[in-house]
Design a binder for these strands. Sequence first.
DNA 1: CTGGAGGGAGTTTTT
DNA 2: CTCCCTCCAG
Length: 821
Amino acid sequence: MEGAEGEGGCRGFFAEKSATAGASCERAAAASSVRDSPHGEPRATAPSVTDLVAFPPPAFPEPADELGLNEPQARAVAHVEGPLVVFAGAGSGKTRVITYRIANLLAGHRVPPYRVLAVTFTNKAAGEMRRRIASLAGDEIAKELCIGTFHATCARLLRRFHDAAGLERNFVIYDDSDQRAVVARVLKELSLDDKRYPPRQVLSRIHKEKQEGRGPADFEPQGFFDDAILKVYEGYERYLRKANAVDFDDLILSVLRIAEDPKSLPGEDLRARFRHVLVDEFQDVNQVQYRLVRALAASRNLCVVGDDDQSIYRWRGADVRIVRNFRRDFPDAAIVKLEQNYRSSGNIVRAALGVIKPAKDREPKELWTARDGGEPVVVVAAQNEHDEAAWVAERVREAQARGVPLGEVAIFYRVHAQSRVLEEVLRAERIPYQIVGGMRFFERAEVKDLLSYLRILDNPKSDVDLERIINVPARKIGQATLDRLTQVANALNVPLYEALVPLVERGGLGTAAKKSLLAFRDLIESLREKAASAPPSDLAREVLARTGYARMLDEDDSAESDARKQNLQELIGSILDYEAEAAAAGQVGTLSGYLERVTLSSDIDALEDAPRVSMMTVHAAKGLEFDTVFITGMEDEIFPFKGPDPKRNEDIEEERRLAYVAVTRARERLFVTHAARRMIFGNTRFGVPSRFIADFPTAAVKGLMTAAASSERSFRDGYRDRDEPARPRGPWVHPMDREKTSARSFASPSASVPARAPGERYIEREPGEGAGGLARGARVMHEKFGVGAIVDVDPGDDPIATVKFSGWGVKRIKARFLRTE
DNA sequence: CTGGAGGGAGTTTTT
DNA sequence: CTCCCTCCAG
């Protein structure tokens, strides 16, 4: 976890009060930057950018060559004044550009580090960026930079400007499950049926509003379902406010409201703060984040870096149009396109191109590589998920034998549910692995319990936390008592904790209940005293001891309780880590600081650089790279994913970009597997190979099939169609290979993209002529064969199309049996 | 009020 | 399949 990042980083920011003070700070920092980057003193990490990029900016590309930058990269580094958008293709050296650019600002242009804001989406990315700048410009300077995720940066700003946002300084951040608990609570208070209004859905609706910057007052209900949503939204906001709590969206929204307020002092402060703003992964920003960035970049020195082809977070509010329309909002923006891929072998780049090429509305880019083809992309047909997993494990062993470190091997899947089988096989094979995501550590019941105790000690108004732990371990405060407590709290309009004493005084409770409530209050009060002085780790131990939580686990001698104890031990370990890091930065770790960091950390931050195979969803893989990559479950309806809810139209465009992200993670070897049969979510699905597989250029791919899948019997089970004549015996040929030989003549021009020389133009597919609205190259759907691409059409009253199906090869089908998508 | 058993529902991606 | 919730008996 890198949560401590910005703490030291933004110190200059917080210390600074007025413009004049700022100016003097600036001078001091400039002076220190000179001192810290002496030209005569050789640094450990040569060549340093500070030596090569002198002020005034030299003409690139000459020094750029020395830095190992290509021409567009150098342009992105050197363009310092005004807006700049960098379209950075996968593996095109984006991080390098950002870090050099910042180093250039610091050293070449004497921009004080605390006046540079760099925003990322994960703590891991932020930490890496800071580390790399430190190696270029020195630790002291890098420490002063404001680098962080949107959420962490805003949380920090909000601690500073909490007044302007109507919060107390010790506000808590509610995570997803806390938010759901709030919604459930509000539904109950409004007597709304949570079957009709599932908290998850209600919540996602609320988030959607918030991510576009609309509060309850701006909500326009349509239909009576929305009337209820509006009431819940209002109740939800009221609840958070009363609990002195914010959700993830609020972090950004609150800072945005301050920054956009033309009159307030904090607003002016914020807008004048940063001279340069950089945003990484810009394709993932949502409307509110974009507005915030614009407000903070009042200097107009705004550099955004992204790749619209890798936009995969639409469901959480990200809006690709923002990056695509950036030039409309900033007509004077300079544009740089990084198109040379340095990461992957030629075949992998070509496969990636094949997948992304049919995407709609993409910013034209010509990703190319100077590397040779390398190994072909291997597409594997497996019988079922066990067969698939066994095959993957075998290949992992093989890679290991070839000398590939296990840390350089990754297995991807579309949904977490696929991970279990893979895990079982790896464990049986004794192949060490680590999983990113899944059942998250901080979501485990015992961990949440202890955190709830800590949060209630930090902020007693947090009702969600109070409800969670008031009767854990059991202390005879049941539902009936809790309901009365809620009544009293509502009547007095105070948080639950403050209603404890009034409830007891009001009477009407049994003596036992009274006693329990007061005992609980005393417990919390005395722990709060402790909290004021003790370090968080001591406090956590104290909580476990004095609340009886430790005893509860001790008395329960199931295997589970041992695991729980271990988890709690690990949690305390993470508190100790936090304290140590804070101490190293010359600060004292606080309870609030730790809690904030926990809530804002993500699974990917915990990914270790260890000699173990990494397993994760494709989403989690964005931004990473590995020598050898397996993409599993490449079947239609898995990847692209199709949920059970037919109302929700799955977004093929985004799935396609997701596939592109997956493919481009691999440097040397890429294996893509699909299974004929797969047990998932409790029932068996029969799958056809993903339509995206058909988009790999034939020449870059080699088709294989597992031993099990190649047996006649399983072949019949999985693939054979009753109407089809039995296939002849003999060696089975994968569709991919078949195509290479016999079917080649049928292949449409687009199906076999020739190898391209570096820099050669990328040719967009021309829609061909066709009958009945069926164009060459168009994607069609057939009930039995799944998805295919039209190769040719015989016109006439009853047109017949020649269609290439993924997994079935080429077939002639009457057009009326085809659906266009 | 507690604890266990049994039924039902919902299953992507996450700061 | 698994988790969560409810319901029921003690």
